[in-house]
Amino acid sequence: VGDQVLEIVPSNEEQIKNLLQLEAQEHLQLDFWKSPTTPGETAHVRVPFVNVQAVKVFLESQGIAYSIMIED
Results as ranks from 00 to 15, higher is better:
V55R: 00
R46E: 02
F32T: 02
F32S: 02
S61Y: 06
Q21T: 11
N12R: 03
K56D: 01
P48W: 03
V47R: 00
L6R: 00
P10K: 01
G2T: 08
K34I: 09
A54T: 12
Q4S: 08
L22N: 02
I8E: 00
G63L: 05
P36L: 04
K34M: 05
T37W: 05
N12Y: 02
M69G: 05
T37Y: 06
A43N: 04
L19A: 01
D31K: 13
N18Y: 15
T37E: 06
S61V: 11
V50R: 09
V5R: 05
W33M: 14
K56E: 04
V9Y: 11
F49S: 14
T42C: 05
W33S: 09
A54P: 05
E14P: 03
V9E: 05
E13F: 11
A65W: 08
V57R: 11
S11I: 15
I68S: 05
T42M: 09
R46Y: 10
E26R: 05
T42G: 05
V47P: 01
H27C: 05
D31S: 08
V45E: 00
A43D: 01
E23Y: 15
L20M: 15
V47K: 00
E71M: 11
P39H: 02
E41W: 07
S67M: 09
L22P: 03
L59G: 00
Q29N: 13
E23Q: 15
L22Q: 03
V9N: 07
D72F: 15
V50A: 15
E14S: 10
K56C: 07
L19H: 00
V47E: 00
V52R: 04
F49N: 11
E23M: 13
V52A: 07
H44W: 12
L28Q: 03
N51Y: 15
Q53N: 10
E26H: 10
I64P: 00
G2R: 07
V50I: 12
N18S: 13
G63S: 07
L30W: 03
K34H: 08
A65T: 13
D31C: 08
I64C: 01
K34P: 06
E26W: 08
L19F: 02
L30Y: 02
T38A: 12
N51G: 04
D72Q: 12
P39M: 06
Q25T: 11
L19K: 00
T42Y: 08
I68G: 03
N18L: 15
V5L: 10
I64A: 00
D72L: 14
P36R: 00
P48D: 04
V47S: 01
F32H: 02
N51S: 15
Y66R: 00
M69L: 11
L59I: 01
I16P: 00
E41G: 05
V9L: 11
V52M: 10
K34R: 06
G2D: 10
L28E: 02
E14L: 09
E60Y: 04
E60I: 06
I64T: 01
G63N: 10
Q21R: 12
V1N: 13
G2W: 10
T38R: 12
Q25C: 06
K17I: 14
T38L: 10
Q4C: 08
D3Q: 08
T38D: 07
K56L: 11
Q21E: 15
Q62L: 11
I16D: 01
S67H: 08
D72K: 09
K56M: 15
S35G: 13
I68H: 05
S11M: 15
L19Y: 01
Q25K: 07
I16Y: 05
P10R: 00
S35N: 12
A43L: 15
W33R: 07
V47M: 02
M69N: 05
E13Q: 10
K56H: 06
A24V: 09
A24F: 09
F58K: 02
K56P: 00
D72N: 09
Q25P: 02
L30H: 01
H44A: 08
E60K: 05
Y66A: 01
V55N: 00
S61E: 13
S11P: 02
F58V: 04
L20H: 11
H27F: 08
N51D: 06
V55G: 00
A43R: 02
V50Q: 14
E26G: 09
G40H: 08
N51V: 09
D72E: 15
G2P: 14
A24G: 09
V57N: 13
S11H: 14
D3H: 14
E13A: 10
E60G: 04
S67I: 10
I16H: 03
V9I: 14
E13K: 10
F49V: 10
F58S: 02
I8A: 02
Q62A: 13
Q15C: 02
E71L: 13
E14C: 05
F58D: 01
T42W: 03
E41C: 06
P48F: 03
F32N: 02
T37H: 07
V55M: 08
E13W: 15
K56S: 04
V50S: 11
E23R: 12
T37R: 04
T37F: 05
V5N: 10
Q25E: 10
V47F: 01
G63F: 05
T42Q: 06
L59T: 01
Q53G: 10
F49K: 12
P10C: 07
N18W: 15
Q53H: 14
A54E: 14
N12H: 03
P39R: 03
T37L: 06
K34Y: 05
M69P: 04
H27R: 07
E71N: 10
V52Y: 09
E23W: 12
V1W: 14
V57H: 12
N12L: 02
E71G: 11
V45M: 09
A65G: 06
L59E: 00
E13G: 08
A54V: 13
I8K: 00
I64H: 00
Q25V: 11
V1G: 12
F49D: 06
Q21L: 13
H27W: 15
Q4V: 14
V9G: 02
L28G: 04
N18I: 15
I68Q: 05
A54S: 09
H44K: 08
V45G: 01
S67F: 11
L22E: 01
A43V: 14
Q21D: 14
I16N: 02
Q29A: 12
P36Q: 02
Q25H: 08
Q4D: 03
P10Q: 01
V50T: 09
M69T: 05
E41R: 05
A24D: 08
Q21W: 15
Y66P: 01
V52G: 03
A24W: 14
I8L: 09
D3K: 07
N12Q: 02
Q62S: 13
L20R: 10
T38P: 01
Q53T: 12
N12S: 15
V1F: 14
F32M: 04
M69V: 10
P10S: 03
T38M: 12
E60T: 09
L6Q: 01
P39T: 04
Q21C: 07
P10Y: 03
F58W: 15
D31R: 08
N18P: 02
Q25D: 14
V45D: 00
Q53F: 08
I70E: 13
L59S: 00
L6I: 08
Q25M: 15
S61M: 13
N51T: 06
D31I: 09
E60Q: 08
A24R: 12
V45C: 05
D31N: 07
N18E: 09
L28A: 03
L28N: 03
V57P: 01
V57Y: 12
D3E: 07
V57C: 08
I70Q: 11
I68D: 04
I64Y: 04
A43H: 07
D72T: 12
Q53R: 06
I8M: 05
I8T: 02
P48N: 05
A43K: 01
P48T: 04
K56F: 06
Q62R: 15
V1P: 14
V5P: 02
E14N: 08
P48H: 04
I70S: 10
S61N: 11
E60F: 04
Q4W: 14
